[in-house]
């Protein structure tokens, strides 16, 4: 087997192992949350017997390890379970499956994240490369200063600033619905996407710049210069191919943030993303939904980091072309 394939499979295996461990952590930390769904729904005055019956219906009376095994076994079969909300101890059952709740929210989040990434990643790479090329110039300093400023503001503050200045141009409410067409959706998410771009560009841009400048001290860069290569060519052809590993790591980190860390932005723009869903489910003790969201977040992190690892491996000729 090619060593790269072997390494990738190995990383994949480690990723799955991590996900398994994380699932235990998620389950136990949610189990340790104070309060109880039964009491939450039925209120403080509910009779203990009623609460007990309700708990039994939801399966909360079983020991924790059994509940974990039930849950993880179902998840492995693609069943994220049924949401607690909409249930009542008596009367009609209006509960929905977790996937029904999470699915549309997740696709909204991925849409926003994907759209933001399409702007932010090329922009950061461009800024990073040009800043490295003209390092210590006015351009370099201003790019650094501006991106540092935007990353230093709290997200909600940036969001409100954008609303103040751009409210006339873009809608300030991003309440997308499935029946909107693409153009309308994009108009709706313009402001949140812009906010998040401003938040993540600095990190990726600075890392690109640092990774490149770090390499510029290498003897092979001096060699390229002494072969008469222009500055642009030195950066693009001689430095960049060796800088992908650190850059990919930072990009992966920021993309993961776009999926899992944007609840504040969602709240400001009333965007129906998965972040809000998770916050809601935690506050209403809707355990299956909270667990599903946490698991999706964990899987996102692991997957993106795995991807960064793989990019690091395939752009390293020592690994790709062993002796």
């Amino acid at each position: 087997m090619h060593p790269v394939l072997y390494t990738v499979l190995q990383r994949l295996g480690l990723g799955l192992l991590t996900l398994f461990i994380v699932s235990i952590i998620i389950f136990s930390s949610i189990a340790m949350l104070p309060g109880d769904f039964g009491e939450q729904v039925l209120g403080q005055q509910a009779l203990p017997e009623t609460v007990e019956a309700f708990r039994k219906e939801l399966g909360l009376d079983k020991p924790a390890y059994i509940r974990y095994i039930d849950w993880i076994a179902a998840v492995l079969q693609g069943d994220l379970g049924t949401s607690f909300s909409g249930r009542a101890s008596s009367g009609s059952d209006q509960s929905r499956s977790v996937w029904e709740l999470v699915g549309p929210r997740l696709s909204n989040t991925l849409f926003l994240a994907g759209f933001t990434a399409m702007i932010a990643v090329p922009l950061s790479l461009f800024l990073g490369i040009t800043a490295a090329l003209k390092r210590n110039s006015v351009y370099d300093r201003s790019v650094n200063a501006v991106t540092l400023t935007t990353i230093s503001f709290p997200e909600f503050f940036l969001a409100y600033l954008l609303i103040v200045f751009l409210a006339g141009i873009f809608p300030t409410l991003s309440n997308v619905t499935p029946d909107m067409d693409l153009g309308e959706r994009i108009t709706k998410i313009a402001l949140p996407a812009l906010t998040m771009t401003l938040v993540i560009v600095a990190h990726m841009m600075r890392m690109t710049r640092a990774a490149l400048i770090n390499l510029l001290a290498s003897p092979y860069i001096e060699m390229a210069q002494l072969k008469g290569a222009s500055r642009t060519k030195v950066i693009i052809k001689h430095a960049l191919p060796n800088a992908w590993a650190p850059i990919a790591t930072v990009i992966a980190f920021n993309l993961a943030y776009l999926v899992v860390g944007v609840v504040v932005v969602e709240v400001v723009f009333v965007y129906p993303g998965i972040g809000q869903l998770m916050v809601d489910s935690v506050s209403s003790r809707d355990i299956p939904v909270a667990q599903a969201c946490a698991l999706i977040f964990a899987a996102t992190y692991i997957l993106l980091n795995l991807l960064a690892d793989v990019i690091g491996i395939v752009t390293n000729p020592r690994l790709l072309h062993p002796r």
Partner: peptide, 11 residues
Amino acid sequence: AQSAAASFNPA
């Protein structure tokens, strides 16, 4: 250059 190993671009 002195160190050929370092003066060739690994990529």
